[in-house]
């Protein structure tokens, strides 16, 4: 189990939302680079080399395609490299394309890690914070979706074994599937009646419910969430004030080095690499503990 998984889901949720939103609203190359490197490293640490290598199969072509197509459609920019059909292909547009593609890939990696850590019971818990009723509905849906997917497969097998699929043409297949669907539908209705019996037999609907979960809130969660919010808000405020604006057209800006800009780079850097740093620290601690045994 990774360290991140042990944080309270609320901390995880806020951390990822801040890390993702900041890069979403920024075109600054420093922010994008930090975001890309941090999210890629975190993915690599949590999901392993093989899965990330597989992800490159679609990430790399995406980067190349966006980088190359942007200059084909956008002809702004001062530095002309060459002309195609009388349209200028500019260096600025090329760089802008690269920045957009890296930003997009970094968001993809953030979400990959997010869905890896945020298992369904954590999502149910988070919903419970907003609306306990909604969270129960979510939990029940997470129960019956796999149940009826399985029933559908079984009903399909049963129909097939009774010669329900007369021929293999599309019309017959569709009719058979429709039949299977009606079977599963009636099973689901009947199941819902038993389930509601089982719910009322266990006192559902008697009044106010409590919302039980397996998650604890520790002092480390308090500290982490405070630090995360400070870093996130600091970066966002400086960004909103325009200290890390960055223009690609007509000429690429130089990277600002005013005090506030640097503060925003550092605070986002700290935020973005915090997750992977925590993971690496955990690994090292384990290693030391193991070598002592």
């Amino acid at each position: 189990m990774s360290r991140l998984e042990r944080y309270n889901p609320l901390v995880i949720f806020i951390y990822f939302m801040l890390a993702i939103f900041i890069v979403m609203f920024s075109m600054h190359p420093v922010i994008i680079c930090i975001s890309f490197i941090a999210s890629f490293a975190l993915s690599l640490k949590l999901e392993g080399v093989i899965k990330i290598a597989k992800s490159l199969i679609y990430i790399l072509p995406m980067i190349i395609i966006i980088t190359l197509t942007n200059p084909l459609f956008v002809h702004k920019g001062a530095t002309e490299l060459f002309f195609i059909n009388g349209n200028a292909i500019t260096l600025e547009a090329l760089i802008y394309g690269l920045a957009v593609s890296l930003k997009l890939s970094s968001i993809i990696y953030w979400f990959r890690v997010y869905s890896y850590i945020m298992t369904s019971d954590k999502v149910v818990y988070l919903f419970g914070k907003v609306s306990p009723r909604l969270s129960l509905v979510l939990s029940m849906s997470l129960r019956f979706v796999p149940l009826y997917v399985k029933k559908f497969r079984e009903a399909d097998d049963a129909t097939r074994a009774l010669g329900g699929y007369a021929t293999s043409n599309i019309k017959d297949k569709l009719l058979a599937k429709l039949h299977v669907f009606s079977i599963v539908f009636s099973i689901a209705i009947e199941g819902a009646i038993s389930t509601s019996d089982s719910m009322s037999a266990r006192g559902y609907g008697l009044g106010k419910r409590t919302n039980y979960h397996n998650f604890k809130w520790l002092w480390t969660d308090t500290i982490t969430i405070i630090v995360v919010i400070i870093l996130g808000v600091l970066t966002s405020v400086i960004m909103a004030l325009g200290y890390s604006d960055f223009d690609y057209y007509p000429l690429i800006d130089s990277i600002q080095s005013s005090a506030l800009s640097v503060v925003s780079y550092i605070s986002y850097l700290s935020l973005a690499v915090a997750a992977v740093a925590v993971e690496i620290k955990e690994g090292v601690t384990w290693h030391i503990l193991k070598s002592r045994i």
Binding site: S120, D121, V124, S139, G191, S194, S198
Partner: peptide
Amino acid sequence: NPDNQIVTDKVWH
């Protein structure tokens, strides 16, 4: 029926 009585998605829940 063992299936129809279960309400939620996790054993602990």
